[in-house]
């Protein structure tokens, strides 16, 4: 049995949930913050042969602090390989070698489609967001995609304003029709309230577990589509002692993860 200290913050729980999705030996493409922290927890606990890469061209970096961007200087010294975008996004991702991709979304819908382009109409947007970056190809080509999102009726949507990054697009069969590689697509949405997994038949995100302090009713009420609840729905396992130890003492010694509390992940 695992020991579960109760002094954790919500972003730590979310990072641990991401870590548990990683299998030993996975090749993981990560962005900054959460994804790196999550994958690193896996590497320091149950999956020591996990290999991380950043789209900017870095493979197996050994940063001395959490990277603040995928171009961060701390990713350079100690990496096993540094190339460029066509190396990581082309040779490795499009080449079919990436097991797990981590993405965050300003807006995420029930099929796991992600919007990072515009809020509102494309031609007259309320907010112009950064655009795809690496998100579209990671969503298209990584075998398992883990999505981080804020759980409210603004950030989750029945349908996103703009599909920047493909989840299951319009539902079952759509990825296949577009010729996206077999056995790829989103596998999990991690929110600050729950874990949502995709039904193998309907491809809709369904409630798999609710975090301690939340409830099925609260999660359903905060979700803007008719959220199905899995038969085996349960409370999310809190962070394990060894996960928190790895996170706080080896990966994020400066407590960077606390910025996610300010971003609303509470």
């Amino acid at each position: 049995m695992h020991e579960h200290p109760n002094d954790y913050i919500k972003p730590e729980l979310m990072a641990c949930c991401g870590a548990r999705e990683i299998r030993d030996g996975d090749v993981v493409i990560v962005g900054t913050g959460f994804p790196t922290i999550s994958a690193s927890i896996a590497k320091h606990t149950h999956a020591p042969r996990t290999m991380l890469m950043q789209e900017s061209g870095v493979y197996d970096a050994r940063p001395r602090r959490p990277a603040l961007s995928v171009g961060d200087p701390c990713l350079n010294p100690g990496a096993a390989m540094i190339g460029g975008l066509t190396d990581v996004m082309g040779m490795f991702l499009q080449g079919g070698w990436v097991n797990v991709g981590f993405l965050a979304g300003s807006q995420v819908d029930k099929y796991g489609n992600i919007n990072t382009t515009v809020i509102g109409d494309y031609d007259r947007p309320k907010s112009r967001l950064p655009g795809s970056g690496g998100a579209n190809p990671i969503g298209a080509l990584a075998q398992r995609v883990i999505i981080i999102a804020l759980h409210n009726t603004r950030r989750l949507a029945e349908k996103v304003d703009f599909i920047t990054t493909p989840g299951y697009i319009d539902g079952p069969g759509t990825r296949e029709r577009w010729g996206l590689p077999k056995n790829t697509g989103p596998s999990l949405i991690i929110t600050n309230k729950a874990l949502l997994r995709f039904d193998p038949d309907s491809k809709e995100a369904c409630l798999a577990s609710y975090h301690p302090g939340s409830s099925i009713d609260e999660v359903v009420a905060s979700t803007p589509w008719d959220l199905k609840v899995a038969d085996d729905v349960h409370e999310t396992e809190p962070p394990r002692a060894e996960e928190l130890k790895a996170l706080r003492e080896r990966i994020d010694t400066i407590g960077l993860i606390k910025v996610y509390e300010q971003k609303g992940y509470v």
């Binding site: 499009q94 489609n113 382009t117 298209a140 920047t164 493909p166 577009w178 996206l180």
Partner: peptide
């Protein structure tokens, strides 16, 4: 040839 962008609104704009 590239394998991304298909099926998304990246194609529509």
């Amino acid at each position: 040839p590239v394998k991304d962008m298909v099926g998304t609104d990246m194609m529509k704009v």
